[in-house]
Amino acid sequence: MTFVDSHGQARTVEGETGSTVMETARRNDIPEIPAECGGACACATCHVYVDEAWVEKVGKPSQMEEDMLDFAFDVKPNSRLSCQITVRPELDGLVVTTPSQQG
C-alpha cells in the first residue's frame, strides 16, 4: 500500500493480511499517523483520506467510526480511520493520504 503525506511525499510498504492500515503505518514508521489510542477507535489520530479509486473497495465506516471522525481535522467524504481498515488481498495497491494535522 502507498501512504502519501500531507506534502505529497509517497511511500509504498507491504501490509500484512489481517492487520490494519494503521498497524502497517506504525510498523513502517509512516509519519503523520500518531495513532494515540493504539487502534481502539477511541480517537481520530489515524485519520486518512482513501484515494477515490479505492473508496468502494475499502467500504463505508461503521457508525462508531463515523462518530470518531467528528473529532478529526478536515473530514472529507473519503475520510476513514486507518485503524478500522483491515488489510486484505483485494486492497493490494491501496493508496491513502494523511491530513496536514491529526485530530
Results as ranks from 00 to 15, higher is better:
M1A: 14
M1Q: 11
T2S: 14
F3T: 11
F3Y: 15
D5V: 03
D5I: 02
S6L: 00
S6K: 13
H7A: 14
G8F: 01
Q9M: 06
Q9Y: 06
R11H: 13
R11C: 06
V13C: 06
E14S: 15
E14Y: 08
G15R: 09
G15E: 11
E16A: 09
E16L: 08
T20Q: 10
V21M: 02
V21K: 03
E23P: 03
A25T: 03
A25C: 09
R26M: 15
R26D: 02
R26S: 10
N28S: 06
N28M: 08
I30A: 08
I30P: 12
P31T: 04
P31D: 14
P31K: 12
E32K: 08
I33S: 09
I33Y: 07
P34T: 06
P34E: 10
E36Q: 13
C37N: 04
C37Q: 12
C37D: 01
A40E: 15
A40V: 02
A40I: 00
A42P: 07
A42F: 00
A42C: 06
C43H: 02
C43A: 11
C43G: 09
A44P: 06
T45C: 00
H47L: 03
V48R: 05
V48K: 01
V48I: 13
Y49G: 04
Y49V: 01
V50K: 00
V50T: 08
D51M: 03
E52Y: 00
W54L: 05
E56M: 02
E56R: 12
K57T: 15
V58Y: 04
K60L: 12
K60D: 15
P61F: 07
P61V: 00
S62R: 08
Q63P: 06
Q63S: 14
Q63R: 13
M64S: 13
E65A: 05
E65F: 02
E65W: 02
E65P: 05
E66C: 03
M68Q: 11
L69W: 01
F71P: 03
A72Q: 01
D74Y: 04
D74P: 06
K76R: 15
P77K: 08
N78K: 01
S79C: 02
S79N: 04
S79T: 04
L81S: 01
S82T: 01
S82I: 07
C83H: 05
I85R: 09
T86Q: 12
V87N: 10
V87T: 03
V87M: 14
P89C: 07
P89R: 07
D92I: 00
D92P: 04
G93K: 07
G93P: 10
L94V: 05
L94W: 07
V95E: 10
V95W: 10
T97I: 00
T97V: 00
T97H: 08
T98H: 06
P99T: 06
P99M: 11
S100K: 13
